[in-house]
Design a protein around this nucleic acid. Structure first.
Length: 462
DNA sequence: TTTTGAGTTGTTCGA
DNA sequence: GTCGAACAACTCAAA
C-alpha cells in the first residue's frame, strides 16, 4: 500500500469514471492532484480551446475542493522536468495513458524519471472506450477496415471501471499554487460551461434526443448532435459512462454508440501509424501535385470562398471553436478536392481552432475526407457543396445564422447566390464581389482537376 | 493457400 | 422526376 500518491491529470479532467484517480484513492492515505500546463500544447491551441481548457482546470479544482477539501495543484512548464522532480516526494504516481506520439514519448520519459526518483508508476486507460491495441482481428492484428473493427469492438466486453470514488477518507492535499495565474490567462468566456457536472448535464440532455440521432445528425440547423466532442477531448465525461447510459435500445442509440467506436478506431489507427497527421497512410497520395494556393487557403480559413455552406462552417468554427459534423465533411472536401490544397493544411487549421481537437480524430478524419487513409472515401467521391447545402440545410437556417449578409435571399438562391437575378440580389442588399465574395473556384472544373490529379498518382504514366 | 465478400457519410449521367 | 449504373480497381478479413 502506497501511502502518498501523485495523480497527474492530463486528458481526464474528471473524478467520475477515472481509473487513475480511483486506483490512487484506493491505495493511498494521502493524494495530490496535479495538472501541468504545457507551453508546447498551449501554444498550438487557438483562443477557444485555450479558454475552454483553462476554465476546465478551474472547474476541476473547484470540484476537487468540493468533494475532498483538497485542491488541484497547477504547475506551468515542461512535464518531463516537473513530474519526475515532484515524484521524489511521493511513493507512487498515477495517470491515464494517451496514444498520441507526443504524449507517448513524453510519458516514457516521465516514467523513467519518476522511477529514478524512487516512486512507482501506475498507468490506466481512461480516455477511450477500449484501450488502443485491445480490439484485434482474428489474426491478432490491428484492423485496417472499420466494419470488422466495429464488430469485434461491439462484442468485446469491457471490465467496468469503478464508477466513482466514494472513499473520501483519503486526504487530498491543498496547494497555495498558481490558480491566480491560471485565471489571469483566461481571455474570454469558454465556449461551453466547464466542468464534469456541466458535461454530465450535457450528456443527460443528450439522452433526451439520442433516439432521433440517425434522422437528425446531418442537419446543422438543428440540435441533432450530442455536443459532447469537447467533453471527450478534455475527459470531462468518460466514453464508457456515455455508452452505458445510451445503451442500444433504439437505432439512434446504436448509431451513436457506433460513432463512439469510431473514436476508438482512430486511436487504434494512430497506434499503428503514429505519423497519421504527417503522412498519407496510402503513400502514393503523398505524390499528389497539390495546388496549395496561399490566398485561396486564407479565403477558406476566413469563410470567404463564395460558397455559402463552406463559409458558414468556417465562420462557425472561427467564432465558436466548433463545427457541425456534416459541415466538417463539406468544408474538408472543399479544401482538398475543390481547392486542391494538401489535407495537412486543413488538419493543422482544425487542430488549432477546434475545442475538441484531437490528433487521432482530426488527422484520421482528414485522411478519410482526402481519400488518403485506411478505409477512406474513394477518391472520386467529391462533395458538391451546393447539393450538400440544398440537401442538409434546405431551409437555409444554418446559412442565415452564419452568413447573415445572405439572409434576405430566398431558399433556392441562398445556396448559390451567383444564380440570383441582379435585381433580386440588389433588393437583398447583396453585391457579389463586394458584400459577399464571388465563388473562388468553379466546382465542376475543380472536380475535373482533382480527379485528374488523383488519377495521376494512382496510375502514374511510365 | 486460395477464395470470397465487403467496404460511413456521393455525384453525375443517361435512360 | 426517378432510377440504376459508373466512377476503379483494390485491400482487407475471414472462411
Amino acid at each position: 500500500m502506497s501511502s502518498s500518491s501523485l495523480v497527474w491529470f492530463r486528458r481526464d479532467l474528471r473524478l467520475h469514471d477515472n481509473p487513475a484517480w480511483v486506483a490512487a484513492t484506493q491505495r493511498s492515505q494521502s493524494l495530490t492532484a496535479l495538472y501541468v500546463l504545457d507551453d508546447t500544447l498551449l501554444a498550438t491551441a487557438g483562443k477557444h480551446r485555450r479558454n475552454q481548457l483553462l476554465a476546465e482546470l478551474v472547474a476541476l479544482d473547484r470540484h476537487i475542493e468540493h468533494v475532498t477539501g483538497g485542491r488541484l495543484h497547477i504547475r506551468h512548464g515542461d512535464s518531463t522536468a516537473i513530474v519526475p522532480k515532484l515524484a521524489g516526494s511521493f511513493d507512487a504516481v498515477y495517470w491515464n495513458s494517451d496514444v498520441t506520439p507526443y504524449a507517448t514519448r513524453r510519458d516514457r520519459f516521465v516514467l523513467d524519471g519518476v522511477r529514478a526518483a524512487g516512486a512507482d508508476v501506475h498507468t490506466s486507460w481512461g480516455t477511450l472506450h477500449h484501450p488502443p491495441g485491445s480490439v484485434l482481428t482474428g489474426k491478432g492484428t490491428l484492423s485496417k477496415v472499420f466494419t470488422p473493427f466495429y464488430k469485434v469492438w461491439r462484442r468485446t466486453g469491457v471490465a467496468p471501471w469503478p464508477a466513482t470514488t466514494d472513499d473520501h477518507s483519503v486526504s487530498v492535499t491543498a496547494d497555495p499554487g498558481q490558480h491566480r495565474e491560471l485565471v489571469s490567462l483566461i481571455t474570454d468566456e469558454p465556449p461551453l460551461p466547464p466542468g464534469e457536472e456541466a458535461a454530465l448535464d450535457r450528456l443527460d440532455c443528450w439522452l433526451g434526443r439520442v433516439d432521433q440521432y440517425n434522422d437528425a445528425r446531418d442537419f446543422p440547423a438543428t440540435d441533432g448532435t450530442s455536443m459532447l466532442s469537447a467533453d471527450l477531448r478534455f475527459g470531462t465525461v468518460s466514453p464508457r459512462r456515455i455508452s452505458a447510459l445510451v445503451g442500444e435500445a433504439s437505432d439512434g442509440r446504436q448509431g451513436f454508440v457506433r460513432q463512439l467506436s469510431w473514436r476508438d478506431w482512430w486511436a487504434h489507427t494512430l497506434l499503428g501509424f503514429p505519423d497519421l497527421a504527417r503522412r498519407s497512410v496510402r503513400p502514393e497520395y503523398d505524390g499528389i501535385a497539390w495546388n496549395n494556393d496561399e490566398s485561396e487557403f486564407a479565403s477558406w480559413c476566413d469563410g470567404q470562398t463564395g460558397y455559402p455552406i463552406v463559409d458558414a462552417g468556417m465562420r462557425q468554427l472561427n467564432e465558436t471553436g466548433w463545427m457541425h459534423n456534416r459541415v466538417r465533411m463539406i468544408v474538408g472536401s472543399f479544401l482538398v478536392k475543390d481547392l486542391l490544397i494538401d489535407w495537412r493544411w486543413g488538419e493543422r487549421y482544425f487542430r488549432r481552432m477546434l475545442i475538441d481537437a484531437d490528433i487521432a480524430q482530426n488527422a484520421g478524419n482528414w485522411q478519410w475526407v482526402a481519400g488518403t487513409g485506411p478505409d477512406a472515401a474513394p477518391y472520386f467521391r467529391i462533395f458538391n457543396p451546393i447539393s450538400q447545402s440544398r440537401k442538409f440545410d434546405a431551409g437555409g437556417g444554418y446559412l442565415r445564422r452564419w452568413v447573415p449578409e445572405l439572409a434576405a435571399l430566398d431558399d433556392k438562391t441562398i445556396h448559390e447566390p451567383w444564380i440570383g437575378a441582379p435585381l433580386d440580389l440588389a433588393s437583398a442588399g447583396i453585391v457579389l464581389g463586394d458584400t459577399y465574395p464571388a465563388p473562388i473556384v468553379d466546382h465542376a472544373k475543380a472536380r475535373d482537376r482533382t480527379l485528374a490529379a488523383y488519377k495521376a498518382v494512382k496510375n502514374p504514366k511510365p
